[in-house]
Simulated scan of single mutants.
Amino acid sequence: MPLDRMLRNLITWQRADGPPVPVRAVGVEQARARYLANTVVPPRAGAGPHAAVTAVDRSVDTPDGATFRCRVYTPETDEGRVVVTYLHGGGWVLGDIDSHDRACRSIAVSLGAVVVSADYRRAPEFPYPTPLLDAVAAARWTARRFPGRDHVLAGDSAGASLSVGVALHARDTGELGLAAQLLLYPPVDPRLLFAAASDHAQGYLLTVDDMAYHYDLYVPDARQRSDPAVDLLNADLRNLPPTVVATAEFDPLHDEGVELADKLAVAGVPVRHVPGPGLVHGYFLMQDIVPAAAVRSERVLEELAGVLRPAPGPGRAAAARYAGAARGE
Rank of each mutant, 00 (worst) to 15 (best):
P2T: 05
D4A: 02
N9Y: 09
L10K: 04
R15V: 02
G18T: 14
V21Y: 09
R24C: 04
G27K: 02
V28D: 13
E29S: 14
Q30K: 10
A31L: 03
R32I: 08
A33T: 12
Y35Q: 08
L36T: 05
L36Y: 04
N38Q: 15
N38P: 01
V40P: 00
P42K: 07
R44E: 15
A45E: 12
G48T: 03
P49D: 12
P49T: 10
A52M: 10
V53P: 02
P63W: 11
A66V: 06
F68Y: 12
R69A: 15
R71V: 01
R81N: 05
V83Y: 05
G91V: 01
V93Q: 03
L94Y: 03
I107W: 02
I107P: 01
Y120W: 06
R121D: 12
T130L: 05
D134S: 12
A137S: 15
A138T: 03
A138K: 02
R140H: 10
T142N: 10
G148A: 06
D150F: 01
A154M: 09
A154S: 09
D156V: 00
G159R: 04
S161G: 14
S163N: 09
V164R: 06
A167W: 03
R171H: 13
G174M: 04
G177M: 13
L178Q: 11
A179H: 02
Q181T: 09
L183P: 00
L184G: 08
P187C: 08
V188Q: 00
L193F: 03
L193P: 01
H200I: 00
T207E: 00
D209V: 00
D210A: 05
A212Q: 08
Y213M: 03
H214S: 02
D216G: 01
L217W: 06
D221S: 12
P228F: 15
A229H: 10
A229T: 14
V230S: 11
D231H: 12
L232T: 11
L232R: 04
L233N: 01
N234F: 15
N234A: 14
D236K: 03
T243K: 05
E256N: 07
G257Y: 04
K263P: 00
A267S: 15
H273A: 12
P277Q: 11
P277E: 14
G278C: 08
H281V: 00
M286E: 09
Q287V: 05
S297M: 10
E302M: 11
L304A: 07
A311H: 13
A317V: 14
E329C: 14
